[in-house]
Amino acid sequence: MRHAQLALSVNGEAVETSVAPYKTLLEVLREDLGLTGTKHGCELGECGACAVLIDGEPQLSCLVLALECEAREIETVEGMARGAQLHPLQAAFADLGAAQCGYCTPGILLTAKALLAREPRPTPSRIKEAISGNLCRCTGYQQIVEAIEEGARRMDDERRR
């Protein structure tokens, strides 16, 4: 029962740390790497607040052992912006009221990013389906859906440019 050496790739950067085997990816991100943008609301897979991208797919960091993340690409909300420039989804969320308290926001942003990577122009009902594993208590979801549609439009515009 000893700590284990862990080599991860987080937001494109290689990081090494030593962790207790019981630590989930969520705990390592927040407590060992200081990446507190990833949130938690239950730690049991019941809210979606801790969602991050692992190899491009949204997964719940509270139910992934950090030890199982070696050689996988992890992306957190801290990795979304390009330099000082917000990712189009982030900008749309900020502009359109998709983030009220902002607590469920990182998980939803990453979930939406993965959706748009597969389906660049999803319908509102596809968006609702994609974010149905992320509980939000503030917005009623409507402005989130609209922000994802707007983010998709802005990403489209960027691609055309």
């Binding site: 029962m1 085997p21 019981y22 630590k23 969520l26 730690e43 030890l67 199982e68």
Partner: peptide, 12 residues
């Protein structure tokens, strides 16, 4: 935060 208990981890 809910945390896991200690365990040994094996990855065959």
């Amino acid at each position: 935060m809910m945390r896991l208990p200690w365990f040994d981890y094996r990855a065959p």
